[in-house]
Amino acid sequence: MSLGPYVIDARSGRVGQVMGREGGYVQLRPPGGGCEWDCPPEAVAPAPVAEELRARVRAVDQEERLP
């Protein structure tokens, strides 16, 4: 499965990676993994470059810690 871009949930300011769509919502997952959450499409905004870079670093760090 191809992972989507990092975005901001404008309701909470949380950064998440787009995992897909379900029932009219965008499903987001925190950088490095964790529990997905649903976000209405109108509350999804592109992540600023600095936030996206931080998210990518966290995801790589998490992958390196896994056995």
Rank of each mutant, 00 (worst) to 15 (best):
P5Q: 10
G16I: 04
G32S: 02
L66Q: 15
V7R: 11
Y25E: 12
R56Y: 03
A55R: 03
P31S: 02
G20W: 05
V60I: 12
D9V: 07
G33P: 04
G33T: 06
A59N: 05
R21A: 13
L66G: 08
V18W: 02
S2N: 13
V18L: 08
P48H: 00
S2V: 15
D61G: 13
G20T: 12
M1T: 11
G16T: 09
E36W: 10
E36L: 13
P30D: 08
D9T: 05
Q17L: 04
E63K: 13
A55S: 03
L66K: 15
V57S: 13
R11T: 14
L66P: 03
V57Q: 13
E64M: 09
R54T: 10
Y25Q: 05
V26W: 02
D61S: 12
C35I: 12
A45L: 10
A55N: 01
V44C: 00
A47G: 04
P5N: 13
S12V: 10
P67D: 12
S12W: 07
A45K: 15
S2G: 13
R11Q: 11
P67V: 09
L3N: 14
I8N: 01
G34A: 05
Q27S: 10
A59M: 05
V7T: 13
Q27K: 14
D38F: 06
V15G: 01
R58V: 15
G16Q: 01
P30T: 06
V26H: 03
G16N: 05
G23K: 12
E22W: 11
E64N: 11
R21D: 12
A47H: 08
P41F: 01
E42V: 09
R14I: 02
P40K: 02
V49W: 00
R11P: 08
Y6S: 01
E63A: 15
C39G: 04
L66A: 15
E63S: 15
V7S: 08
Y25R: 00
E42G: 07
D9R: 11
V15P: 03
A59K: 04
C39N: 02
G13E: 00
L28A: 07
E42H: 14
R14Q: 12
I8F: 01
V49R: 12
G32C: 06
P67K: 03
V26E: 07
D61H: 10
E36I: 12
I8K: 09
V44D: 00
V60T: 04
D61V: 14
Y6M: 05
Q27D: 09
V44F: 03
R21M: 14
V57M: 12
R29W: 00
C35V: 11
G20M: 12
A43H: 06
R14F: 07
G20C: 10
R21H: 10
L28N: 08
D38S: 13
P48N: 04
Y6N: 05
E36Y: 09
S12L: 06
G34L: 06
L53N: 02
R14E: 07
R56I: 15
V26A: 07
L28T: 04
P31A: 07
P5V: 10
P41G: 08
E42R: 04
G23A: 05
